[in-house]
């Protein structure tokens, strides 16, 4: 019995070290297409969603925000949106909030698109496109990561397959 315990402890220690190293690696090696950006305060953002509820980014302090700008006419947005829908359940009731912002389209277009491509998701609507322009994304789609202090930390270049392991690891890593 004594002998069994004697090898279990170092093995457990090694496993814990490996787990810790993996977590650190996941956070220090960013997935393809995700870049760290200058840590500055996120621009303000207050918009209504499809149900008429008002969302204010300032109220998300204390959480990471996955802030995704999109439009229905943008090819990569169509491809990416289902991958966002696929991960939303993973982050319900966590400190990662997934927020979508449609850029400069009317309600009919937005409802039709979401009903077809991602029926489980809600989106904020930026009807005149001016909020999106304040954020100056590098194109559409574009995803920013705002940290719990309200600072911009990462941006995803173009569309990303968020439901793939390396991206899920990155998102989970934000919560650790």
């Amino acid at each position: 019995m004594q002998k069994t315990m004697s090898w279990r402890r170092p093995v457990l220690t090694i496993l814990l070290c490996l787990l810790f190293t993996t977590q650190v690696y996941a956070m220090t090696t960013l997935p393809k297409g995700i870049i760290e950006i200058e840590e500055i305060s996120a621009p303000p953002l207050t918009l209504n969603d499809m149900e008429g509820e008002t969302y204010m980014l300032a109220n998300s302090k204390g959480k990471w925000v996955f802030l995704h700008f999109w439009a229905s006419w943008c090819g990569p947005c169509i491809k990416e949106m289902p991958t966002i829908q696929a991960i939303t359940s993973n982050f319900e009731n966590t400190k990662l909030q997934i927020i979508l912002v449609n850029t400069a389209e009317d309600e009919d277009t937005i409802f039709s698109f979401m009903g077809t491509v991602a029926p489980d998701l809600n989106t904020l609507m930026d009807p005149d496109g001016l909020t999106t322009e304040d954020w100056q994304p590098r194109g559409l789609p574009s995803t920013y990561f705002v940290d719990p202090e309200g600072k911009l930390r990462y941006v995803a270049l173009g569309g990303r397959p968020w439901n793939e392991g390396v991206y899920l690891d990155f998102l989970n890593g934000l919560l650790n």
Binding site: T103, T132, R138
Partner: peptide, 19 residues
Amino acid sequence: QAKQSTFGWTQLPESRDLH
């Protein structure tokens, strides 16, 4: 304005550093 914004997003940016 909304259509102007859409038009703007269909144009190449004036400047962009590409990773």
